[in-house]
């Protein structure tokens, strides 16, 4: 019987000892981060490597990536999870290729966020927190992204999209299809 597809770290953390593998170029990139901190303070590189490299390469914070990072930083696997489960930008389950994060905090809220969210969700046929069936889009509602003067706004991946209107949202989504 095939194992059920794990969907979150809590499902998977128990079951997998798999350790991710990375190319020498990626390892070199990790070492660049490590070099910023005193040699006895490797743990400082945990968040930068996990977010900027492992999550980028693996698509999310999966068990194999975490197992690798624990070995790489001479830490326990639980040390990595302890930190990873605190921060909202770590995707502890797979997300779509394009992760649409709509700012829902006050300035965006009063400048039209509800209409933007409604439009995006109905266009993609999902609710906030869900991923489209083809795995292309995930929509999340997130807290303030520091673009209040150009509200409403959203971030797709790391790209800021500001001063949104229904028309510009359509253009942005169409360009990603």
């Amino acid at each position: 019987m095939a194992a059920a597809t794990p969907t979150s770290y809590t499902d998977k953390v128990i079951v997998s000892d798999e350790v991710a593998e990375f190319s020498p170029e990626i390892i070199a990139e990790m070492n660049e981060h490590l070099a910023k901190y005193p040699p006895e303070r490797k743990r400082s590189a945990l968040i930068p490597i996990l977010m900027l490299i492992i999550q980028r390469e693996r698509g999310w914070v999966d068990n194999a990536g975490v197992n690798f990072l624990a070995k790489f930083l001479d830490l326990e696997v639980t040390d990595i999870w302890e930190t990873a489960t605190f921060y909202s930008m770590f995707n502890l389950r797979p997300v779509g290729r394009h992760h649409i994060q709509i700012c829902k905090t006050l300035s965006c809220k009063i400048m039209g966020e509800p209409e933007i969210t409604e439009h995006i969700c109905s266009k993609l046929g999902i609710h906030p927190g869900e991923t489209t069936e083809d795995g292309k889009f995930t929509v999340s509602l997130v807290e303030c992204l520091g673009s209040c003067g150009t509200a409403p706004m959203m971030q797709i991946g790391y790209d800021f999209h500001e001063d949104l209107t229904i028309e510009t949202v359509d253009q942005i989504l169409d360009s990603l299809r």
Binding site: K36, L46, I47, L52, T83, Y87
Partner: peptide
Amino acid sequence: HTHTGAGAYICGEETALLSSLEGFRG
């Protein structure tokens, strides 16, 4: 050097920021 956080408002509080910079929960 630059250092990235990973999404946590509390890390704007200076001691939480330092915890985060050391690789811990903020």
